[in-house]
Each structure stands twice: as structure tokens, then as C-alpha cells.
Write a protein that binds this DNA or RNA. Structure first.
Ligand SMILES: Nc1ccn([C@H]2C[C@H](O)[C@@H](COP(=O)(O)OP(=O)(O)OP(=O)(O)O)O2)c(=O)n1
Ligand SMILES: [Mg+2]
Ligand SMILES: [Mg+2]
Length: 1081
DNA sequence: ATCCTCCCCTAC
DNA sequence: TAAGGTAGGGGAGGAT
């Protein structure tokens, strides 16, 4: 694998007539930096040793000895230094900062602290780098880029290392129940089997084991279908559980037949799912870019290179081009990467798919009825658009070749196909069966996820070395705002694109194409024209002509559905759509979509590159291989999904307030056996959600709530075809902001549950705990009343462990009793179990009652009267005292007010924006950001971007200093004073989370050392938040500030942080009697 | 109007 | 045989 030196070929398109750069670039680039300065260094100091012979480092982020110094040292001692990360050449990545280095974590390469270099030199020999490693190298694994290993607990499933997997498999945690086989009794009566399934294969679990070769680290499937050696390893994908009973974890013969519900299944599935991978990567890159920017500064080696090239005369000067957006996208990504190992296939029609070249003995599943699905799709769409064509074709193919087993119509999807294949009509996402029909000569190659992720990282790192004005779209695609870079270096955007693309090709061996234009829209469209391996710039004045002939389907957001609607309106191209009025479009497509279409078809697009978008949800779902027979299997699988979601939440340090369970159920008239092997077939979708009184990332709560939801959705186990759990309404988890026994937490929840005067309105949500029927409150001991009716799981989670256990036990019993009493309502969805939680059933849209005062509840202390006595009784002595004290105090505070038992009155405080980050630029309502009045805000206006090292030389004397002006300060004080009086704490007028965040970021980005007044202002703001009981916001902002300061050079920032934390802590202490628990020093 | 929830749609 | 995930945009329709 090593090597893979870029095969360079002459680029054909692109670079039209741009100076001799192309020809010269080869010899230039690398040497440019290396040789030159290296030579100088060498001359000066001579070669000192060969300590680092064979070592090639890549420096990532800020390091103590600077990157330049490290380069010098390496060269001095026989090592090599790479400006860009190159999978093939770099042996060690040097970094001192974890955040910065995460994305560069590639394969097994090590990430080592710079001290390793220094110490080795000092020792006069190459020391082991192990002690200097920032953290252990990741082990491949499904889906993750290996960003944050530190977060994932070691035990986490992800490893793909087969050995580990195997060993784990036997004694896996929570699923130790592998032994549960017993229940197999049901033996799926044939009846079920009727439903077609694969059953014939009764005990022969053989059915379909996937067998990825155990050792092949990669994705291996290099050969599966062919001969799956029976002994292989346990990778049967979806199984019939009958096999279960037989196998024991240790019984050799057994292939653990992972069934969709077996510990392995989820992990096994994900490691093979391309969609899971690309989706996960996309999310991680988005996050990476965000962090890149918040970390600010960087060396921008790529930009430096541009300047070098310009100085050398290889690149011509170019005037400020105005706004220029570039869209870069790798050419047939998976295929390109896959071909690195298969050069002999270059030039041929190639596809990446799980399907093997030839389908072994296709044993057609009995019971399968492809026609059903075909008809379904046919009538669902009028045809046109790929999806439907595919189905139609499939049909033709299938029926015509019923007999010929070799004509087996494979429904394995093609992730990516080469351009040669595309010429024949093959497309990404197409079934292999159809593709083979179009292109009998189609060559297939296996997936290699690890490799894709390495190339993706290189792609991002290369682009990031030029600028951080990036918006990540996916693992193979991103937008870059070249406006500033082009202007700063005085080089044409097209030249910059070419240099970047060359670098990409050089470093990864894969080609990328680029589209440039005055907007995101045009850039993206231009890329289509540029592909493959080219680039195209649509200048502003060319837009009208360019857009005119574009197919509407190519516009972002126009997929199959919208495309059909527009077609019905008589428009298929942008030019045609321009004939329609704005009103008409909005009437047909909705206000937003209508407006977008109206503008897009005219080539107008005002969107800017965005990097600051906060993630809104975290989810995990699987809609493949799901075949169950017993309810317990379904439950068990759901529990595993809960673990998965929980893990993902923790990885990004988030908690969510709302949980949605998604179910796919076989459509009533759909055949039991899907056309696609183990596919979900035609389904009905169900979803149901609960809103928790407080955000959580607890597995116990998520699992429990999910199971509760599942109970209310009656779908026959054997008809379940897909399940998923989504957590939304996220907030940062801020580890510990609230210690386990925090009174505040207690209170929030306690009141939430107690006061949950659930207005159980309508039908669907019958949850009323109060209802006599479902709860036995009358007969239970006092504290048991906490159960079902008055306590929700999140409250529980916050209880002291011992108490919690008791309570849980009681709750379970109560639940059981309740369940017994519950009558099956014929409806799919009906009630909900716990109080304080609202549930919505899709079908019943009317649920109603949204938890009344959710928000308030979480931020206020209850009155004593609101707390159930039994709850208090259950508390440990000391806590009870605290609670009482706290409540009493509060009563005093609010005594003046009429305090009803309601919780509503809380101060206005800025909180309102917190729960909902709803955007809608249409709400300029409240507080206008009054920037420009304070030092801080003044800076914002003055300094646009974090100073980029790069541009320093050329133009840009652009100041990057904070400039406090007395004048501003005065006004600032006034403003500040006002805000103190106002109910909503604000920082320079900013109150929303994002506003404040960006303000803080601008502050740290643009100022080398903070000014006291600013620090004070910030502290005041935080203290006001505390005063308003908005600890969450205060905590959040503190944490954010910490992250920004962490990457600052000046100690003054660290000091500021310390000062801020101390002040705020004092305030919190004084007010609440404890300190915030922050996860940083 | 504007918000909110519950979906569907889209994209890679 | 096959690995049909996942996050965000936004429309529909009820609540405010
Ligand atoms: N239906 C799809 C579409 C894409 N992908 C994966 C494989 C692709 O290689 C990668 C990138 O998607 P692109 O849309 O960028 O397609 P390609 O890179 O393959 O081709 P192109 O040259 O058109 O960009 O995402 C996939 O698995 N399934
Ligand atoms: Mg691509
Ligand atoms: Mg792409």
C-alpha cells in the first residue's frame, strides 16, 4: 500500500492558457520550500547527524519548537519534513495539540509530541516515540475518522480489528445475554416461514454469512460470495434466530450468527455500510472545519506556496476578483481511491460495490416477489428520474431471466462508478443487476473505507493549508471561499484552484475537479461541467447564459419530488422556470422553496459559506437485515441502537432533550420477502417522540424511553424492517456542569415531574399518571409515588445511586402492574408511560399538551410546596436540607410575587433563545446587536477575519489589534448598565448563543492580548447570566471561551480565562452554594 | 404572523 | 444474495 505515488499524468482540461505554471510546477513545488531553506540551514550548521534517517515528519498545528524549527532540526539530523500530509511518505505527525491533530490521524501513523525530536537529538539517537505519542493510534473502524479517540472509551465497539472483535464478541458487555438462546422455542413456526423468509435454511444458518475475511483489515470482502468458507467467522448477517439457540459463544462451529439484534450485528453492519461511513465522515469534517476556524490561525502553508510561486514568476498577478466561491469534488471518489491499488483497471468501466463479480449460485429466495416492488415504484413515480428507471429496468431484467441463474439480478448498490462506466449509463446508486445489463464488462472492486478516509483527510488538510474559509459538504466535496485568499495573494482563483488540485493529485493520487463562480450555486453547477479532472470558472457576467440551460434537477434541493412538480408546471430547465412568477412558485412549492427556486433559476444565490452551524441531532438507524420473530429480539436490538446513539452523543459531548423512535414496518400488502436480499422492501414509516424535561445522554434514559416508545407502536415483530433512534434539541453536555447530586438539578427535575400537571388533553396521550387506572398510587408507600406518575427517568438519573435503585425497582413494579391493566388499544400508538413527558404520535397529530412549561421548569427552583413530600422523604438527609434551604431561599426571593403553584413566572432572561436556535433570518426582533459601541464590538467591525499569517507580506497592513477607544467605552458602559437592568443579559447587545459565541470568537481571534475592560465586560455578562439562573448559558460560554483560549499563544488569555472562571465561580458559589463543575482546570 | 411539532425530501 | 445512514431544509397544519 505504501507508495502509491501519484501517477501523474498531464491534465487535460483546466488550466486553459494560464502561463507556464503547469509545466514548471512539478519540479518546483516541493523543492521550493524544502531545498531552499534547507540548504541554507545546512550550510550554516552542517549536517549534524543521521538520527532521523528514514523518518519523515509532518507538523500539525502549533508546536513548541515551531514548525520551521522542527523542519530545520529534522534536516539537520537526517530526517525529512513534509509540508503536506502524505499518507505514503509521512511516518510521524508531530503535534502538541490534540484538537488540531485529530483529522490528521491517519491509519497507523503516529502522532507524536515535538519533544520527541528534541529529546532524540539530545540523546544523540532515535528514541522510541511511544512515550511521546499524543494518544494511541486509532484502529480503523467503522465510520469514524478517528478524530477523538480520547473520548471514546476504550471499550467502545468501533474497532474493526477482527481479533478484538472476536474476543469481545464472546463476552460482550451488556449483551452477555447471548445465551438467551433458550427462548428460541418459538421456532418460528413455519407459518412465519411462509412469509417466505429464508427459512428453508433452517438450521443452516449458513444462510448468508458474510464472512469478511477475518484478518483482512480492510473491508475485505474481497471475496465473499464465492466460497465462504464455512468456518470463517461469525458474520452472518441477519439471521434467523433459530440458529441462535444452538450456538454458544464458544462453540466453535457456530458462527455466531449475528442476527439483527446480536451484539455484533450493529457494528458489523456499520462497518460495511457505505452510507453510514460517508454520512459520519461528512459530519466529522463539518466539525473539523468548525474547530479549525475556532482554533484560528494556522500556517497556511499552501498559501505561502502560492506566494512563492508568484515570486518565482510561475504564477501571474491577478486583481481582486471579488467574490469567488470554489467547489471541489473528487472524481468518482471511491473508484479513484480503489484504483490506486488496481492501476490495470484504469480506463475501464469500474464500479465499487459489495457485489462480487459473479453471483455464485444464486438461490433465489422463495417467496420473493420483485414485481410487487416494481409496481410500487412504478406507480409511485411516473418514471423519469433514475430511481424509477432503475426499478423498471430491474423488472424487465428479472422477469426475462427467471431461469438463468447467472443472470441473477444483483441488487447490490454501486457506490461509485468510473466515467467509462457512466458513458454507458451506469450511475452511482444503481443496482449491479441493472449496471451489468448496461455494461456487461463492468469491473467491480471492493470498498476500502479506511483508504477513503485517508484521502478525504488529505483533501481537507490540503485545502485548509490555503484557507479556512471552507464549508464541508461531504468526505469528497467542499466549498471554499477564495475571495479573500485570491485578493490577499494577488493570484487568480483559477490558478489557486489548479495548485490545490495538483496538490491533491500529488498527495493522494486521486483527481479532484473544481467549479468556481460568484456563488455557491454557480460553483457547484460549474463543477459538473468541469468533471472529470478539470476546473471551470463561471464569471459573474457569464452567469445568465450559464444558468439558462441548466436542468432543474441539477439545482440543489431539486430532487425527484420537486422535479416532478416543476415538470408538471412545464419547466425542466432554469430558463423555462424563469417564466414562472415568484408567487406561482411559492404557491406550488412553498414560500421558501419557491423563493429559492425563483432565485436559483436566475443564477442568484445569496448563501454564504457557513462553518458555524451547530449540530441539531444525533441518530442511529438501521433499515437493512432486520428480520425478527419475537418481541424480545426487537427490544434487544433497540437497546443496542440506544447504546449506539448514546455513544455518539457522548462523542460530541452533547445531550438531547428529545428522543424519536423511527420504525419501518412492512406494508400490509407487501411480500414478506423483499426483492433485495434482506432489504426493507416497501414499508410504512412510523415515528414517535418524547420530550424530556432535561437533556440527557444517559444510556439508561435513552434506552428506557426508546423502549417505552416502542411499546406504544404496535408493529408485529416479524414485520419490522427498520429501526432508528434520533436525539434532538441538543445542548452541550458540559460534563459536570451539574454534579450528580447537584441540588439545582434535583430541583429542576423534581419540579418537572411533580408539577407536571400534565394537561393530558387529548386522546393520544393518555399518559396521565394521575389517572387512577394506571397507577397504583393509592396503595403504594409514599415514596413509591414517585414512580410512573411523578418521576421521569431523567429525574431518576440524577438521584443518588442508592435511592435511584430503589425507586427504579418500584417503578418497574408499578409499570408492570400498569401494563397488566392496560388494555391493548387497537391503535398503533397510544399512550405513554411516564409523566412529564409528552409524546407525539405521528398518526395522531394531535397530541397536544406539550409539556407546558418545559423551559421554565428546567431553570427554576420549585417552591417547597411544589415538591412532593415523598420525594423529599426519599432524599438523603443532607440533600434534603439543601433542597429545603434552597427552596426556602427562593421563596423569600419571590415572596413578593404571588406565587402560585405554577412555575411560570421566571424572569425573562435571555434563555428564550437557547432552546431553539431557530434561524429564520426573519427575526431581527429583539435586541439589535449594537456593535461598534464597545471595545469588543468595535474590534469586530474593524477586524474582519482572524489575521491570517499568510497575507502578512503582501498587502494587508491590516491592523489586527484591539483598539479601545475611550469614546466607545463610554457608550459601552451605558449599554452595559442598561443591560444590567434589563431582564436579558447581553454581551455588547448579543444575547443568543450564536451571537455571543461569535462575539467571543471575534474577540479572541482578533486580539493578541485581551484588554481588561473587555474581560470585565465578559465577566459581568456571565455573572448576569448566573443571576438570571441561566447557568447553562454561562457554563456554555465559559467552556467555549476556554476552548478558544486554549489555542491562544498569549498567556494573557490564560490569565483572562482564569480570572473569568474565578469570578464566575464566586458568583455561583455565593448564590447557589456550590461551584460549577467545569471540565477544565 | 409566528411558533412549534411532525413529518417528507434531499444530498452525499 | 448484501450491508437501504444520517443530518438539515422546509412544508403542513395546529397552537399561540
Ligand atoms: N448514491 C451514492 C452516491 C455517492 N456515494 C459515495 C461514493 C462516491 O464516490 C462518494 C462521493 O459522491 P459523489 O456524488 O461525489 O460521486 P463520485 O465522487 O463517485 O463521482 P463524481 O465524479 O460525479 O463526483 O459518495 C454512495 O456511496 N452512494
Ligand atoms: Mg465526487
Ligand atoms: Mg461529492
Amino acid at each position: 500500500m505504501a507508495g502509491r505515488r501519484p501517477r501523474k499524468r498531464e491534465d487535460k482540461s483546466g488550466w486553459d492558457g494560464h502561463g507556464g505554471y503547469m509545466n514548471a510546477k512539478k519540479q518546483k513545488l516541493n523543492e521550493q520550500f524544502e531545498s531552499k531553506e534547507c540548504a541554507i540551514a545546512a550550510v550554516k550548521e552542517g549536517n549534524a547527524s543521521e538520527i532521523f534517517s528514514g523518518i519523515t515528519i509532518y507538523v500539525n498545528g502549533y508546536t513548541e519548537p515551531s514548525s520551521d524549527e522542527l523542519r530545520r532540526l529534522m534536516q539537520l539530523h537526517g530526517g525529512r519534513f513534509q509540508y503536506y500530509y502524505s499518507v505514503a511518505q509521512v511516518t510521524h505527525t508531530i503535534a502538541s495539540n490534540l484538537a488540531d491533530s485529530k483529522i490528521r490521524q491517519v491509519g497507523n501513523k503516529k502522532i507524536v509530541r515535538p519533544q520527541w525530536i528534541l529529546d532524540s537529538i539530545e540523546a544523540g539517537r532515535l528514541l522510541s516515540c511511544t512515550p511521546y505519542q499524543l494518544y494511541a493510534a486509532p484502529s480503523g473502524s467503522q465510520g469514524t475518522l478517528g478524530f477523538q479517540q480520547m473520548i471514546s472509551t476504550g471499550g467502545e465497539t468501533k474497532e474493526k480489528c477482527i481479533a478484538e472483535k472476536l474476543s469481545r464478541e464472546t463476552g460482550d458487555d451488556e449483551k452477555g445475554s447471548d445465551s438467551k438462546p433458550a427462548k428460541v422455542q418459538d421456532c418460528t413456526e413455519p407459518a412465519t416461514s411462509n412469509d417466505g423468509q429464508v427459512h428453508d435454511a433452517v438450521d443452516s444458518e449458513e444462510s448468508y454469512d458474510i464472512s469478511p475475511s477475518p484478518n483482512s483489515k480492510e473491508d475485505d470482502h474481497a471475496d465473499w460470495g464465492g466460497e465462504r468458507s464455512s468456518e470463517e467467522e461469525p458474520n452472518v448477517i441477519a439471521v434467523k434466530r433459530r440458529t441462535i439457540e444452538v450456538q454458544n459463544p464458544d462453540s466453535p462451529k457456530k458462527k455466531p450468527t449475528a442476527k439483527a439484534g446480536d451484539a455484533n450485528f450493529v457494528s458489523e453492519y456499520y462497518t460495511h455500510s457505505r452510507l453510514h461511513h460517508i454520512s459520519t465522515w461528512g459530519t466529522e469534517f463539518r466539525r473539523y472545519v468548525t474547530e479549525l476556524r475556532s482554533a484560528g490561525r494556522g500556517e497556511f502553508r499552501g498559501a505561502k506556496k502560492l506566494q512563492e510561486l508568484k515570486l518565482c514568476g510561475r504564477l501571474a498577478s491577478h486583481d481582486d476578483p471579488g467574490k469567488v466561491i470554489m467547489h471541489i469534488d473528487m472524481d468518482c471518489f471511491f473508484v479513484s481511491v480503489g484504483l490506486l491499488d488496481r492501476p490495470e483497471l484504469v480506463g475501464q468501466p469500474v464500479a465499487v460495490t459489495h457485489s462480487k463479480g459473479h453471483p455464485a449460485p444464486s438461490r433465489c429466495e422463495t417467496g420473493a416477489n420483485p414485481d410487487y416492488e416494481r409496481k410500487y415504484w412504478e406507480q409511485k413515480c411516473t418514471g423519469q428520474q433514475y430511481g424509477s428507471r432503475e426499478r423498471a429496468a430491474e423488472n424487465a431484467c428479472t422477469s426475462s431471466s427467471v431461469a438463468g441463474e447467472q443472470d441473477f439480478y444483483s441488487r447490490a448498490e454501486i457506490a461509485s462508478c468510473s466515467y467509462e462506466a457512466r458513458k454507458l449509463g451506469v450511475r452511482n446508486g444503481m443496482f449491479m443487476g441493472e449496471a451489468r445489463r448496461l455494461c456487461p464488462n463492468l469491473q467491480t472492486i471492493p470498498y476500502n473505507f479506511e483508504r477513503y478516509s485517508m484521502v478525504s483527510k488529505s483533501l481537507y488538510n490540503i485545502v485548509a493549508s490555503f484557507t479556512h474559509d471552507i464549508e464541508a459538504m461531504s468526505c469528497d466535496e467542499l466549498f471554499v471561499d477564495l475571495s479573500k485568499l485570491s485578493k490577499d495573494v494577488g493570484i487568480s482563483p483559477l490558478d489557486i484552484a489548479q495548485v490545490m488540485r495538483d496538490e491533491i493529485a500529488e498527495q493522494t493520487g486521486c483527481r479532484a475537479s473544481a467549479g468556481l463562480g460568484p456563488s455557491i450555486l454557480i460553483a457547484r453547477l460549474a463543477t459538473r461541467l468541469a468533471k472529470p479532472n478539470g476546473q471551470h470558472w463561471v464569471k459573474p457576467d457569464e452567469v445568465p447564459a450559464f444558468i439558462h440551460g441548466q436542468a432543474l434537477k441539477d439545482l440543489p434541493g431539486v430532487g425527484w419530488k420537486l422535479g416532478c412538480r416543476l415538470k408538471a408546471l412545464g419547466a425542466e430547465t432554469c430558463g423555462e422556470l424563469q417564466q414562472l412568477s415568484l408567487g406561482m412558485l411559492q404557491k406550488e412549492c412553498g414560500p421558501k422553496s419557491g423563493r429559492n427556486l425563483y432565485q436559483f433559476c436566475r443564477g442568484e444565490d445569496s448563501r454564504e459559506i457557513r462553518t458555524d452551524k451547530d449540530r441539531k441531532s444525533v441518530s442511529a438507524e438501521i433499515n437493512y437485515g432486520m428480520r425478527f420473530t419475537a418481541q424480545e429480539e426487537v427490544d434487544k436490538f433497540l437497546a443496542e441502537l440506544a447504546v449506539e446513539v448514546c455513544k455518539r452523543l457522548k462523542e460530541v459531548q452533547s445531550k438531547g432533550k428529545s428522543i424519536t423512535l423511527k420504525l419501518k414496518g412492512r406494508k400490509a400488502d407487501a411480500p414478506v420477502v423483499s426483492a433485495k436480499f434482506m432489504g426493507h422492501g416497501v414499508c410504512d414509516n412510523f415515528a414517535k417522540s418524547v420530550t424530556l424535561p432535561v437533556a440527557t445522554d444517559s444510556i439508561d434514559i435513552i434506552r428506557k424511553e426508546s423502549l417505552n416508545l416502542l411499546k406504544t407502536m404496535k408493529v408485529v415483530p416479524s414485520d419490522v424492517r427498520g429501526m432508528g433512534i434520533q436525539v434532538h434539541r441538543l445542548e452541550p453536555s458540559t460534563k459536570a456542569a451539574c454534579p450528580a447530586n447537584s441540588i439545582l438539578n434535583f430541583m429542576k427535575k423534581a419540579i418537572a415531574s411533580t408539577s407536571a400537571q400534565v394537561p393530558e388533553t387529548s386522546s393520544s396521550v393518555s399518559m396521565q399518571p394521575t389517572s387512577s387506572e394506571r397507577n397504583c398510587s393509592t396503595t403504594l408507600p409514599a415514596y413509591q409515588m414517585l414512580s410512573v406518575s411523578q418521576v421521569d427517568s431523567s429525574v431518576l438519573a440524577e438521584l443518588p445511586a442508592e435511592i435511584r435503585e430503589e425507586v427504579e425497582k418500584e417503578m418497574q413494579q408499578a409499570q408492570r402492574r400498569k401494563d397488566l391493566q392496560e388494555i391493548e388499544s387497537s391503535e398503533l400508538l397510544q399512550k405513554v408511560p411516564s409523566a412529564g413527558i409528552s409524546v407525539h404520535a405521528e398518526t395522531h397529530a394531535k397530541c397536544d399538551q406539550k409539556p407546558t412549561t418545559r423551559t421554565e421548569v428546567t431553570t427554576e427552583l420549585p417552591n417547597l410546596s411544589q415538591i412532593d413530600q415523598s420525594f423529599m422523604d426519599a432524599l438523603p438527609e443532607d440533600l434534603r436540607k439543601e433542597v429545603m434551604a434552597a427552596c426556602t431561599e427562593k421563596v423569600v426571593h419571590s415572596s413578593a410575587k404571588n406565587e402560585t403553584s405554577k412555575v411560570t413566572r421566571r424572569p425573562v432572561q435571555g434563555k428564550k433563545s437557547s432552546p431553539r436556535k431557530t434561524k429564520s433570518g426573519a427575526s431581527p426582533k429583539k435586541h439589535k446587536m449594537q456593535k461598534g459601541q464597545l471595545t469588543l464590538s468595535a474590534m469586530i467591525n474593524t477586524i474582519q477575519q482572524p489575521a491570517q499569517a499568510v497575507k502578512s507580506e503582501e498587502k494587508h497592513p491590516e491592523a489586527s489589534v484591539g483598539i479601545p477607544s475611550s469614546n466607545n467605552n463610554e457608550r459601552g458602559r451605558v449599554e452595559e448598565k442598561n443591560s444590567a437592568l434589563l431582564p436579558i443579559p447581553s454581551l455588547c447587545g448579543a444575547t443568543g448563543r450564536e451571537e455571543v459565541r461569535s462575539l467571543i470568537k471575534e474577540w479572541t481571534d482578533s486580539t493578541a492580548e485581551p484588554v481588561n475592560e473587555d474581560i470585565e465586560m465578559f465577566i459581568t455578562y456571565l455573572e448576569e447570566l448566573v443571576g438570571h439562573m441561566n447557568l447553562e448559558m454561562a457554563d456554555k460560554m465559559l467552556k467555549y471561551f476556554y476552548r478558544l483560549v486554549k489555542v491562544q499563544q498569549a498567556d494573557a488569555w490564560r490569565l483572562a480565562l482564569h480570572q473569568t472562571v474565578e469570578s464566575v465561580q464566586q458568583t455561583v458559589l455565593a448564590r447557589y452554594g456550590y461551584r460549577l463543575k467545569l471540565d477544565f482546570p
